[in-house]
Design a protein around this nucleic acid. Structure first.
Length: 422
RNA sequence: GUGAGUGUAGCUCAGUUGGCAGAGCACCAGGUUGUGGCCCUGGUGGCCGCGGGUUCAAUCCCCGUCACUCACCCCA
């Protein structure tokens, strides 16, 4: 019996791994153009980091984290998201970041112990970016534009952008009060989960998808109408900047993020008609997080993360094929193996993708392999040619074949390398 | 955590109202050929997910279990 992988954790195999690499390269490229530098944080963090940032009452912390005691009895957690670790790293290395604002991006695996299904894994991967040190609504617009452009660049179609503002400590408590009062008046019509949520985290009730709750809260007070002056102004400026750069969006005052640290602007890129896993990328502003994590300094910040598996799923099969073999060396008889092997290494050294068969298969079988690998040229080492110091040189696409002295064959293959060099 | 579906060859899947396990693709060899593709012939390859039960006999029926998939929930 072979050993299967852990549930919800998948091997990324070719050719998917190639598309994966291409997507990551595109993200990295775009991040660098926006002035972001890469940060790589550990996969393991102290459990406290996520409990304090993501929120004790969120599903992520309550029942989805990979948490365990290490050998010294300390509670550790495999990161369920990327923002809190980046903020921690920023605070811990405060001295190395002298110039503000700070722009950081990351890529890597995240872990949540959920029941796997389409577009949802236990080890999944995110690309994310965080912008620290500015309250400006232009920062919000920059991040949304960054993400919007990236998704467009990948070729994704039919994505829509939803934005909202959750207010800040100046206005959210008042809204919470209003909403709580409203919800208690509708308590009988709420689902079981929402009755519990109502007390702990009333905003989450708005995010409930059950029919009954949706109807019961159809006329719930809107966050956007309860914003204080500064928050309203900020949100208006973000909307204005987005319009100015031609990005269309819809307001969704019911959009609540699953993490507690967000305030003011939040946004989500969704694909309609994709079922429950419709969020491809999402983010928001989290001006209070640094202080929640015990920092003395207030660090305004905004960031986003996108689900790599979900993007690739939506992109489907297209793009990034495995590079084809250029030259296949066919041996007619095992006595040519070592000579062909020397050619192969020589060609690879010249930057040419060369392959051969080591197993002594029939010439026919070797040609079949060359064909499937997409080889442009095949060189055959055969008995009758060997006596004349020659090889058979075949151009697969043209179907042309000729016997060439070895020196001439090598010259032609080297030209192939030169073409690539230019 | 809840519910449904599926586990048979490397892959995609048939199958037997219970009676020696099948196809296509792939792989290997041979034929044909312009030394490859198309075509023809042959061959390798299976604890029929695992454990129990019923039966003369179980891949098939029953119970359990594990895995995968999908949905709910939640999220990227």
């Amino acid at each position: 019996m072979t050993i299967p992988s852990v549930r919800g954790m998948k091997d990324i195999l070719p050719p998917v791994s190639a598309r994966w690499a291409a997507l990551e390269a595109a993200f990295r490229d775009r991040a660098l153009r926006f002035g972001f530098s890469e940060i790589r944080t550990p996969v393991l963090e102290k459990t406290e980091l996520f409990a304090r940032s993501v929120g004790e009452t969120t599903d992520i912390v309550e029942k989805e984290m990979y948490t365990f005691l290490d050998r010294s009895g300390e509670s550790l957690t495999m990161r369920p998201e990327g923002t809190a670790p980046v903020v921690r790293a920023l605070q811990a290395n405060r001295g190395t970041f002298s110039e503000w604002p700070v722009r950081l991006f990351y890529t890597g695996p995240m872990f949540r112990h959920e029941r796997p299904q389409k577009g949802r894994l236990r080890q999944f991967h995110q690309f994310g970016a965080e912008l620290f040190g500015t309250d400006s609504p232009f920062a919000d617009a920059e991040m949304i534009t960054f993400l919007h452009g990236f998704l467009e660049e990948t070729g994704l179609r039919g994505i829509s952008l939803e934005i909202n503002s959750l207010g800040d400590p100046g206005c959210r408590p008042a809204y919470h009060g209003k909403l709580s009062a409203f919800l208690s008046s509708r308590e009988e019509r709420l689902c079981e989960d929402c009755r519990r949520r109502r007390a702990q985290n009333p905003l989450r009730v708005l995010d409930c998808k059950s029919e009954g709750c949706l109807r019961a809260t159809a006329d719930a007070p809107s966050v956007l109408e309860s914003l204080c002056g500064p928050c309203r102004e900020h949100f208006g400026a973000v909307e204005g900047a987005l319009r100015a750069s031609g990005i269309s969006f819809t307001r969704n005052p019911r959009m609540v993020r699953g993490l507690d640290y967000y305030r003011r602007t939040t946004f989500e890129f969704v694909i309609p008609g994709m079922g429950a896993q419709n969020a491809v990328a999402a983010g928001g502003r989290y001006d209070g997080l640094a202080e929640m994590l015990g920092g003395r300094e207030r660090i305004p910040a905004i960031g986003f993360a996108l689900g790599v598996e979900r993007v690739l799923m939506l992109l489907g099969e297209g793009g990034s094929p495995v590079p084809a073999t250029e030259v296949f060396l066919v041996t007619s008889g095992s006595r040519f193996l070592s000579e062909a092997f020397r050619w192969k290494l020589e060609l690879i050294g010249r930057g040419i993708r060369a392959e051969m068969d080591y197993e002594g298969r029939s010439v026919k079988s070797q040609f079949r392999r060359a064909d499937r690998a997409g080889a442009r040229f095949v060189v055959v080492f055969g008995e009758s040619e060997a006596e004349r110091g020659a090889v058979v040189f075949r151009d697969m696409a043209a179907g042309a074949q000729e016997e060439l002295p070895k020196e001439e064959a090598i010259r032609r293959l080297n030209r192939l390398g030169d073409e690539k060099g230019e």
